[in-house]
Design a protein around this nucleic acid. Structure first.
Length: 214
DNA sequence: CGAATGATCGGCT
DNA sequence: GCCGATCATTCGA
């Protein structure tokens, strides 16, 4: 694992608690999720990766958010719930995009996980992706990382708060300094008018495991 | 009920 | 760089 510039201690890992997710500021949570580990366990098979790229979305004033303007539908309902759940939806009829619901109840916001650095059980992730060699293409991009981890829309609404479930996020004591985080505009949201330019896309500086910056 | 539309990806030129 | 894939969701009739 390439951890250049990243400090790692050998303290035990821990599941991120409810208090991490229910904070008000989804932009801060987006930054805090960098360096955390997204883990799935499906049919007793565990796969994981370190989060290296995220995007923030919030309903209150962000036209790019599915729940903007208090748009409450069966799809977006989970975003109005309390933070600490998965929001997964299908994009372009093909891709399952995984988001972390954040904030208190009735404050709809979410963080899209855009890229991970594969860590545990890379052979299974390669198999799910139909690839032979480990490369950033395995998991750089929100659609492909879901495929690598086996995440589908059926995960939407699932709690992230227990490592007894099939999906959760852990802190493994990776400490990132703020100068190791780069911000840029989000992609694929041209309809979002002035919000297009908001620098709500975050990545770990110098990580080769992110998708390409805009 | 029909039609439009994506928070993307990979293959082809 | 461009383009088609492919379907759940959404909205309006």
């Amino acid at each position: 694992m390439d951890l250049s510039g990243i400090k790692e201690s050998d303290q035990g890992s821990r599941v991120l608690p409810r208090s991490f997710y229910v904070r008000e500021d989804v932009v801060q949570i987006s930054r805090d999720l960098l360096g955390k580990f997204l883990i799935t366990r499906i049919n007793e098979s565990l796969t994981s990766g370190m989060i290296v790229e995220t995007e923030a979305y919030r309903a209150s004033d962000d036209k790019a958010c599915h729940a903007y303007n208090n748009r409450r539908t069966s799809r977006t309902e989970v975003m109005f719930g309390e933070g600490g759940k998965a929001y997964v939806y299908l994009c372009y009829g093909i891709h399952h995009l995984f988001n972390v619901v954040t904030g208190p109840e009735n404050n709809a916001q979410a963080v899209l996980i855009r890229a991970i650095q594969a860590v545990d059980n890379i052979p299974l992730m390669l198999e799910r992706r139909g690839r032979d060699m480990l490369s950033p293409q395995l998991s750089a991009g929100p659609g492909v990382l879901s495929k690598a981890l086996g995440i589908t829309t059926s995960f939407s609404g699932h709690s992230l708060l227990s490592d007894e479930g099939k999906i959760w996020i852990e802190d493994r004591n990776i400490q990132l300094q703020s100068d190791q985080i780069l911000a840029s505009p989000r992609v694929g949201i041209d309809y979002a008018e002035e919000c297009v330019h908001w620098p709500w896309r975050f990545r770990i500086k110098n990580s080769k495991w992110t998708s390409k910056p805009k």
